[in-house]
Design a protein around this nucleic acid. Structure first.
Lengths: 250, 250
DNA sequence: CGGCCAGTTGACACCGTTCAACCGCTGTGG
DNA sequence: CCACAGCGGTTGAACGGTGTCAACTGGCCG
């Protein structure tokens, strides 16, 4: 993690170490006033890993400043009562900004690691008040990315083997973390358990474990010092058919 | 189908038999001018089953007037070159209205049955020109539903058995068809092949076949005269944990 | 009549699950 | 300081849902 944060996001005057600002500034150009809005830290809230974010402050729009969260659902048949991760939220990403009327049809947003959030209402406000501003456009692109990640999840579950699913997911994590200025070209801070990976990829913990060993053996994914490392992202992308979302030209 | 179309959508003056108008009018109240916009049929286009809709007129926004379509992707590993259905488009639903900059990151929209579409630009225009109008709100709710259906797909692939997946999908089809004024309380016109169901649910055609037999044996799904029939939707919902999207209060 | 497509059936293989045990680390309390 | 508990990770063995291969049926259409 220290390694990641010590190298500035290459260009821009954006203050390093702020994933929210880094992320939005890369999506669209922002004027100084908008940058100031994104740097505000109103109503900062820290939660333990495992805590629910929907109970506390959501569904008002908030930024995830640090830590990882996920939208989870519990499978209704009382058989097993398995928990399913629908989508992840990574540092720098907005929570529940969907400019839509409904408050997450079902399920909850849960912190997977210790996490910190802050209010995003002032930033989200610009969506309606000045829809053509850079910040508003950045929000819309962000929502578009969120949908693309949801499609990625469908592709993983529907079209890939366990080996490919894990590879695909780590490539997406790498893309999203570097997009927030966290992590380096081939690594990023990572603290999820194998059980959580299984809940997202619909695999048993045991099989996640065995498959991660295969990925390590093949030199596609490593773990060291709280980092996940993808030594050869291109070869990994080839192994699972991953397509970077940046390809879409905004 | 005739049965379905002969019963008006309960109240309203909406002319029966128009799935586009039926669907949007149920999502939000529309004024006479907006109803007139939705009844317009500009640039009507008929395509054969199997034809691509992205090649011809998309990505300009269009309505699917009749027939079924799907967003498909081809799995990149040349092994098998399996086709995966990411999401379905049912009669009355908009195609590619996502008020977003990108043109469907990858893949194509394909007609699964013979289908007819028409231009929706004039209707979509109101999203930006009068964001508070009923029609604009209906579009946003529609987009929200589309996302909910995408989540449904994730739930099916990640959390359900083959038996439950099919059950879940047919319940969603029933909900969406009745929402467009097509189909009755427990049935709707249906013309997909078992192969297409397999492509959507990530199941082999053989296994779709066997599982459908189980569903028939258990009295959950039947097929007759071009209709799919769910004799006991409540029991079916119990069998797979299906949650209707109407529950979310708009 | 012949071909094609969707549906159907049987036998077998495999990927991933389940159950169970064990390891190593960390935090905590006696 | 050590004992213990708890959690995440690891390993082995057996089971089972689903895929694959192959063959056959029946209806539609040229």
């Amino acid at each position: 993690m220290t390694l990641a944060m010590s190298q500035p996001p290459a260009g821009r005057t954006a203050p390093a170490g702020d994933p929210v600002l880094n992320r939005f500034h890369r999506l669209c150009d922002l004027d100084p006033g908008e940058i100031e809005i994104l740097r505000r830290r109103d109503d900062v809230l820290d939660v333990r890993g495992g805590a629910s974010l929907t109970d506390s402050h959501l569904p008002s729009p908030r930024f995830l400043i640090s830590g990882w969260a996920a939208w989870v659902k519990l499978s209704s048949p009382e058989a097993g009562q398995r928990r399913q991760i629908i989508s992840f939220y990574l540092p720098g990403e907005p929570l529940a900004v969907c400019a839509r009327p409904h408050p997450l049809s079902s399920g909850a947003i849960v912190a997977l690691t210790p996490a910190r959030t802050c209010d995003a209402r002032q930033a989200a406000q610009r969506l309606t008040q000045s829809p053509d501003s850079g910040l508003a456009r950045a929000f819309r692109v962000s929502a578009c990315l969120a949908e693309a990640y949801l499609v990625n999840q469908t592709i993983r579950l529907g079209g890939l083997t366990a080996y490919q699913r894990l590879c695909h997911l780590f490539l997406e994590f790498l893309e999203r973390m570097t997009g927030a200025g966290l992590g380096a070209q081939r690594s990023f801070p990572f603290a999820l358990t194998q059980e959580m990976l299984g809940e997202a990829l619909s695999l048993s913990t045991v099989h996640v474990n065995r498959t991660l060993q295969e990925l390590r053996r093949d030199g596609l994914v490593e773990f060291a010092g709280g980092l996940a490392i993808l030594p050869d992202p291109e070869r990994a992308a080839l192994a699972c058919g991953y397509q970077a979302q940046h390809a879409a030209l905004w």
